[in-house]
Amino acid sequence: MSAAVREDGNDEPMMEVNMTPLIDVMLVLLIMFIITIPVQTHAVKIDLPVPNDAPTNVDPEKNKIMIDPAGTITWNGTPVDLAQLTQYLEQTKTLPVEPELQVQPDPYARYIVVDRVMAVIKRSGVGKLGFVGNEQYARAF
């Protein structure tokens, strides 16, 4: 084991601890913790349909759900609650050709209302889903 000797002529060993290795170890531990922390996300996962190359019989009827800033949910222009929305979605699944469901939330609509509507749509198992009016969000913020 060796000790550092001062250059000022004093033969006593230095009693200071070299901090460089300690700092290096702390930085490595910090990087390891950053890498191992899982990313926290809050999202509603929706299984989107897989595109099919086969020609399909497209129904011209499109159902539209709109959400305004006051939290009112409308189905093709008629105000509905979440229970009625569930019933309407179940009725569309019984049709021979499922119509496309278009969702258009207002840019200033509350997130919790949109989240609840999206959860109802996911639980219903809708196969054709589209978001319309996305260009309005460019000017909203």
Rank of each mutant, 00 (worst) to 15 (best):
V17S: 12
T20Y: 10
T20F: 10
P21W: 05
L22G: 14
I23P: 05
D24S: 12
V25P: 03
V25A: 15
V25M: 15
M26W: 12
M26D: 13
L27K: 15
L27I: 13
V28M: 13
V28I: 13
V28K: 15
L29F: 12
I31Y: 06
M32L: 14
M32S: 10
M32K: 11
F33D: 01
I35R: 03
I35K: 03
I37E: 07
P38D: 05
P38Q: 06
H42W: 12
H42V: 06
H42F: 12
A43S: 12
A43C: 03
K45W: 09
L48V: 08
P49L: 08
P49C: 05
P51Q: 03
P51H: 02
N52H: 11
N52P: 00
D53F: 06
D53L: 13
A54Y: 11
P55H: 12
V58W: 15
D59R: 05
P60G: 02
P60C: 04
E61Y: 10
K64V: 15
I65Q: 01
I65T: 00
M66E: 13
D68T: 07
D68L: 11
P69S: 03
P69H: 05
A70Q: 15
T72E: 07
T72G: 08
T74D: 05
T74A: 15
W75N: 04
G77R: 02
T78E: 10
T78L: 08
T78N: 07
L82H: 08
A83L: 10
Q84C: 00
Q84I: 04
T86S: 15
Y88M: 07
L89G: 05
L89A: 03
Q91R: 13
T92Q: 14
T92G: 08
K93L: 13
K93D: 02
K93E: 04
T94H: 15
L95H: 08
P96V: 03
P96R: 04
P96Q: 06
V97T: 14
V97P: 00
V97R: 11
E98N: 10
P99R: 01
E100Q: 11
L101A: 03
L101V: 03
V103W: 04
P105A: 01
P105R: 01
P105F: 02
D106K: 06
D106S: 14
P107L: 01
Y108W: 07
A109P: 00
A109T: 01
R110Q: 15
R110V: 05
I112C: 08
I112P: 00
I112Y: 09
V113N: 09
D115N: 12
V117H: 01
V117T: 06
A119V: 07
V120W: 00
V120N: 08
K122H: 05
K122L: 00
R123Q: 12
R123I: 01
S124T: 07
G125Q: 06
G125Y: 07
V126S: 10
G127P: 03
G127M: 09
K128G: 02
K128A: 05
L129K: 06
G130Y: 07
